[in-house]
Amino acid sequence: MLESRRRQIRYGWIIVGLNFAMFFMASGAQMAFPVSLISISKEMGWEISLLGQAMSICMLATGLSMPIIGKITDKYGPRIVSLLGYTISGVSTLLLPFVSAIWQVYLLYGVLLGFTWHSTGMVASTTLISMWFTEKKSLPLSIFQSAYPIGWFCTAPLIGNLIQYYGWRGTWLLLGIAFMLVVVISSYFIREPKKSYTKILGKDELNEKIHVRIAVKTRFFMIIGVIIMFMCGFTDIPFAQLWLPISIEWGIEEVIASYGLGYIAATAFIGTIAIGPLPKNLITRSHLQSFI
């Protein structure tokens, strides 16, 4: 049994690597749009505000997708949901260079990419990785989820440079092909473990009885929810989204402020990776990190 668990953990790291690659591509595709905004606007003659609406739709679709993808994941399993989600993200990225009307941008980037890029990674892939690791889930999950900030950090300058050489259509086509290649290769290796060794609440009999409605009523989940809503929602995200106007108020130039956003992503990657190997009792208190 011990050898089988060891084998499971070894293959679990392959699962982490493949999901990292797919989530990296999905985050990159989502972040590539703001970088391409001016090029698309110039070529198509669309107002920036019109294209900005695609970003709003994307955010809205991302928020709405989370509980839906969560429910589907519990019903059909994380393997099929994650592969399907990344495939939809990849196809949307691949089709985006062929758009000729603004509604197509809203559909491909706003709705389809918005609905799948974040929830597939943060819900389906996270559940899949969690299945492969009985204990010490923090390290593999922090390595996997660091694909989000590192995808953000790497893509912005890369896409900016590629647009100079290939234009926005060529760049998105390259991005789409690379994304689909990663998904196709990963689909061959990704699978769910035969058995999960995690014991919920430390008791075997509860494994079959546990339900989302019971879990959300626990004091543990409620406090986690309050922290996520008011800490992440009211500090981290507003600072990132409003970074340029905040920086300008600080007296910082716009160009330097945009570099600043890249530095935030780079340090976010370091922070996410660093928290994984911490001992569990320290991780518990590492919620203090949010205080910063």
């Binding site: 995690t198 919920i200 609440l201 494994n207 986690i224 340090t267 922070g271 996410t272």
Partner: peptide
């Protein structure tokens, strides 16, 4: 800001997973 930006996500995901199962 960067160091604390995304650190909460893997910690809470792992902890929820360990408490309630997959």
């Amino acid at each position: 800001l960067g160091l604390s930006f995304f650190g909460m996500a893997p910690v809470s995901s792992a902890w929820i997973g360990e408490v309630f199962g997959e």
